[in-house]
C-alpha cells in the first residue's frame, strides 16, 4: 500500500491542476485526520467540527503555499495545528465553549460590563458600517435575517455569517477594553 503522504500528494497535485474529483477525495481523506488533530488539541470541544471546517477552509485558501516537490503531511499538519491553536485562543478568551448563537443574548450586557463608560453603540462605531447595521437590526431590533437581507440586498445566509462574525469581533473589542480598564483600577 502506498504511503499516505504519497497518495495525498498525488491527489492534491491533481486537484491543483483542476481535477475536482481528486481534490474532493483529498479533502475527504484528510478530514478525519484533521478531526483527530483538532480533538487532541482542543480537548474535545463541543464545536470541534466547526474548527475542522475552519482548517479545511484554511487548507483550501492556502493551497497555493504547498510545493509539489515537498511532502504534503507536514504542510497539512502545520496548518491544522495553527488553526486549532488559533481557535483555542479565541475560544479561551470567550470563555468555555459558548456557541456563537448564544452570544447574541449576552453581548449587550457583557459590553456594558466591560467598561462602565462604554456601551454597545460605542463598540458598534468601531466596526465597519455594514456589520454594525446588521448587528443593530438583528441583535438590538430583533429583526430576522431574511428581512435584513432583503433590505441590504444579501442572502439570509450571508447576513447570518456577517452577523456572527461581527459579534465575535465586538466580543473581542469589549474584552480588549476590559483588560486595560482593570489594570488602571487595580
Amino acid at each position: 500500500m502506498p504511503d499516505r503522504n504519497d497518495r495525498w500528494s498525488d491527489l492534491l497535485r491533481r486537484g491543483l491542476r483542476g481535477d475536482g474529483a481528486a481534490y474532493g477525495a483529498f479533502l475527504g481523506e484528510i478530514a478525519p485526520v484533521i478531526r483527530g488533530i483538532v480533538r487532541a488539541r482542543t480537548g474535545g470541544a463541543e464545536d470541534a467540527e466547526d474548527i475542522v471546517q475552519e482548517v479545511l477552509l484554511a487548507v483550501h485558501a492556502k493551497r497555493h503555499t504547498w510545493r509539489e516537490d515537498e511532502p504534503v503531511t507536514p504542510w497539512l499538519y502545520a496548518i491544522a495545528r495553527y488553526k486549532a491553536a488559533d481557535a483555542g485562543r479565541r475560544r479561551g478568551r470567550q470563555g468555555p465553549q459558548v456557541p456563537i448563537h448564544d452570544l447574541a443574548e449576552i453581548l449587550p450586557e457583557e459590553a456594558g460590563e466591560a467598561t462602565a463608560a462604554r456601551d454597545l453603540s460605542v463598540l458598534l462605531d468601531r466596526i465597519d458600517d455594514r456589520s454594525a447595521r446588521i448587528v443593530r437590526a438583528m441583535g438590538v431590533e430583533g429583526r430576522s435575517a431574511a428581512e435584513v437581507g432583503a433590505e441590504m440586498n444579501m442572502t439570509d445566509g450571508a447576513v447570518r455569517v456577517a452577523y456572527h462574525r461581527a459579534l465575535v469581533r465586538l466580543k473581542d473589542l469589549a474584552e480588549g477594553d476590559a483588560h486595560p480598564h482593570l489594570d488602571k483600577t487595580s
Binding site: G15, G18, G24, L56
Partner: peptide, 11 residues
C-alpha cells in the same frame, strides 16, 4: 463543505 470546496479545485 468538502463538495463545495472541491468544485473550486484549481487555485
Amino acid at each position: 463543505l468538502i463538495s463545495l470546496l472541491a468544485q473550486d479545485a484549481a487555485p
